[in-house]
Design a protein around this nucleic acid. Structure first.
Lengths: 201, 201
DNA sequence: CCATAGTTGGACTAGGCAGTCCAGATCGCT
DNA sequence: AGCGATCTGGACTGCCTAGTCCAACTATGG
């Protein structure tokens, strides 16, 4: 196992490698991204890459973690403990808006890696699993806040609601990516919202 | 462009190549599947492969079409014009059952290709788009039959319902594949079913 | 200002890959 | 049977890739 860089410069280099790899993978997929591409983009040498990562898989694992952070950070304050139905709508609309700006390209930075890596490397699959856990956890928290405020039925199964909501988002993103049409996500999250609304008090 | 084989034997050979490629891709992903792997598995020579396909991308396009047929055929009669709510449940349950038998491995033969190919080859992306069109079309037809029988509200927007349903399935499959847990799909399709039920008359 | 741990550059290797080529076998029609 | 079209086998090429290796450089604490 390779430890985290000890110096500031080292940490910056490592981060630059991961960020470049994540960008390239998002633009053209894992299969079309070689380590040579990565070192060119990140302006580092091969020695640096293998100084910070054991092998290609190790880098891919770091990319998964990086993308997870990225996705959660991107949803930012909107995906937090919700205080109103309006807040939930705002969060979902933000997701759609992001896809509009991307013209439906790239899909979900986490979700689109599932098809690419889940079957080839079980460790990476675990990292993806963990990413979804965190994401779903935040949704769960958000809904729990709504329940605490008495806006969501006490009988509602928050686990199932969170899973169903995340599934709707992921599915909407898959269709959006395949069709280059953000409306696919729009329709999916509208349905997810209504499904949540059914548990309103 | 390469035409379809003229002889029975030729068609069998071509089909064996596509089926083998589809199997390998399903098991280990596009990136981990080389043409040499394909010719070994299909027990054909390189010359045969390049006799029937222009290049690797051409083969991948054929795999997408093959998987689309496979997925629709697999859902068989259950995904047909629905005559009752029970029929819709049976269809959705069949999807979950299939994942149970697969232990959540592999995801959707069509959907899992989106992340792998949509960004690297626009023609393949088009083929995926077309696959979803056919799938969604069948769902749409099924719902139209329910509407004709007066079991689904006349005001229901069938386009949106079909899209939302397909998105729920795809999202459920993404989570199932990442987590190796068919319950993820179960929860997603349950939500999709309830969403449809809201438009019952 | 030295010792040492941490970092960097890049040449190099061996294997795997997509794609080419063509001779020979087989098919299907008359 | 004979002939052109179709199909098959596999050797071959050249490029790209992941991964190795090591010498040189730089930071930092004592």
């Amino acid at each position: 196992m390779i430890e985290t860089p000890k110096t500031v410069k080292g940490r910056e280099t490592r981060e630059r490698i991961v960020a470049s790899a994540a960008d390239l993978i998002r633009e053209r997929g894992v299969a079309e991204t070689s380590l040579d591409d990565v070192i060119d983009t990140a302006r580092v040498s091969k020695g640096q890459l293998y100084h910070y990562f054991a092998d290609r898989e190790d880098l891919l694992r770091a990319v998964v973690a990086h993308n997870c952070e990225h996705v959660l950070a991107n949803q930012g304050p909107e995906l937090g403990p919700f205080d109103s139905w309006r807040a939930i709508r705002a969060w979902l609309d933000k997701l759609v808006d992001l896809q509009l700006r991307r013209h439906g390209r790239g899909g979900c930075p986490v979700g689109s890696l599932v098809g690419q890596l889940a079957e080839s490397d079980d460790e990476v699959r675990g990292a993806l699993d963990a990413s979804f856990d965190r994401w779903e956890g935040e949704i769960h928290e958000g809904l729990a806040a709504m329940q605490a405020r008495g806006k969501l039925s006490r009988r509602a199964d928050l686990d199932e609601l969170a899973t169903a909501t995340l599934a709707a988002i992921q599915g909407g993103l898959v269709l959006t990516q395949a069709r280059r049409d953000p409306r696919q996500l729009q329709v999916a999250v509208d349905a997810a919202y209504e499904h949540l609304r059914r548990c309103a008090t």
